[in-house]
Design a protein around this nucleic acid. Structure first.
Lengths: 158, 158
DNA sequence: TATTGTTATACTCTATAACTATA
DNA sequence: TATAGTTATAGAGTATAACAATA
């Protein structure tokens, strides 16, 4: 959060010339803006499949981890249980997943993807790969790996 | 988006053992979760000052760029003009900034921070610095710089 | 007592269309 | 015609309290 001089902005100065010293060294806002760009492009990408960022991720996790509990999924997604319920409701209503009773624990439900769910996952994953090529075109593979690593460190700090 | 085998999750498997291959290589979700951690901690930090992430950033930008127009500020913040209006309303109502008529262009308003606004900015910047130390404690200075650089490349791709 | 899934609720964030007054 | 600021509105995302059923 270093700050330098504070130049006055002329009446019709271009935004590019605005001093953002405070914000430039404020990583939080960079994460925010980058996230916004990524999410907007991703949601546009997933719209034809009837999916959003969260629903896509939830479906992918259920496909890869059959028998997942709702609370485990919520933790993996980093969202609160109440917010996940409606997401699971949506996926179930569209017959992409099932909520199966667990004999060992009658409070819990085991989540399983249906055939349709697996098919939609595969199709949408392909689209997401295209999206990633587009959004990360200016960044190298190594940079993305480093990015993800740092983001995970930050995340585990919360 | 590489995927490997899909192990079955045992009834009471810990979340840490869940296969997240799909998501682990899905940078978008890492950005989302990290952003969430940062924003939550930051908003908690700013609450005593009556500020949120956006209002803090807006105030800081106005302090550093006296005479800023609303549309310039919106562009700098990466948000739509309509959403900024209520933010500026809030800051103005609390006498932290002023909306001054511009003789050259009677449509526009020049934004200026008041003394109270500058004082609040300085106080909250100090708190934000503490927040950054906390949230980025597991990351080096160099890693943060690299992170911000990559995020900017992603952002400029939107 | 604690936990799973759930309902209800409220607040924030974001996007879009459309208006007004000026340019 | 285009732009600056504004109004209204709707959709997502997120967080919290509290409940029933079960552990």
């Amino acid at each position: 959060m270093k700050r330098t001089a504070r130049p006055v902005v002329a009446p019709n100065t271009d935004v590019a010339t605005i001093t953002e010293d405070t914000i430039r060294s404020f990583a939080g806002y960079n994460i925010k803006r980058a996230f916004n760009v990524v999410q907007t492009d991703l949601n546009r990408t997933l719209k034809p499949f009837g999916l959003r960022m969260v629903t896509f991720t939830a479906l992918a996790l259920i496909v890869d981890n059959p028998g997942l509990r709702l609370s485990q999924l919520a933790q993996s997604l980093g969202i609160e249980r109440p917010n996940l319920v409606v997401i699971v409701d949506d996926l179930e209503a569209r017959d992409l997943i099932t909520r199966d009773k667990v004999p060992q624990d009658r409070r819990a439900y085991a989540l399983h993807a249906t055939l349709a769910g697996r098919v939609l996952r595969d199709k949408s994953v392909a689209a997401v790969e295209e999206h990633e090529k587009r959004v990360y075109s200016a960044v190298t593979e190594a940079e993305i790996r480093a990015l993800v690593q740092v983001l995970r460190k930050i995340e585990s700090n919360g």
